[in-house]
């Protein structure tokens, strides 16, 4: 199972990556939405986990872009962010985000969510 982790913070990328790798997921990493889209054109992944606030292209715009692409129908996208405002969540939901995890998150909680989506 391949997971694309998108976050402008390297440490978060590494942390999420390590957490997922420990459970045998194959992890790809991108630093922002533009990079992530670029990555997705060449690589097929099973799940995208993205930060919300990023330079160049933020998480919600990334979700919108992914949803526009018919080839990626059904690709789950999880938002991983410090933001917990209802309005933001709603915006993400409408954009087509699959789920939402609030930072700081427990590693096992992240794994549980990922497992549920990818089962």
């Amino acid at each position: 199972m391949k997971v694309l982790v998108v976050d402008d913070s390297e440490s978060i990328r590494e942390l999420v990556g390590m957490t997922l790798e420990s459970e045998g997921y194959q992890v790809h990493k991108s630093a922002d939405g533009v990079e992530a889209l670029d990555h997705l054109t060449s690589t097929e992944v099973d799940l995208v986990i993205t930060d919300l606030n990023m330079p160049n292209m933020d998480g919600i715009s990334l979700v919108r872009e992914i949803r526009k692409d018919d080839a990626k129908t059904g690709l789950p996208v999880l938002l991983l962010t410090t933001e917990s405002q209802v309005a933001k969540k709603d915006e993400a939901r409408q954009a087509g985000a699959t789920g939402w995890i609030v930072k700081p998150f427990a590693q096992d909680r992240l794994l549980a969510v990922v497992k549920k989506i990818l089962r």
Binding site: V34, P55, N56, D58, V86, D90
Partner: peptide
């Protein structure tokens, strides 16, 4: 109750393309 509020915040997309072409 869950009421969807219209978000007024715009997404910020600064024109900083330079960082795209670099790796660490």
């Amino acid at each position: 109750a869950v009421v969807a509020k219209n978000s007024t915040k715009k997404n910020i997309l600064p024109e900083n393309k330079a960082s795209l072409n670099s790796i660490r």
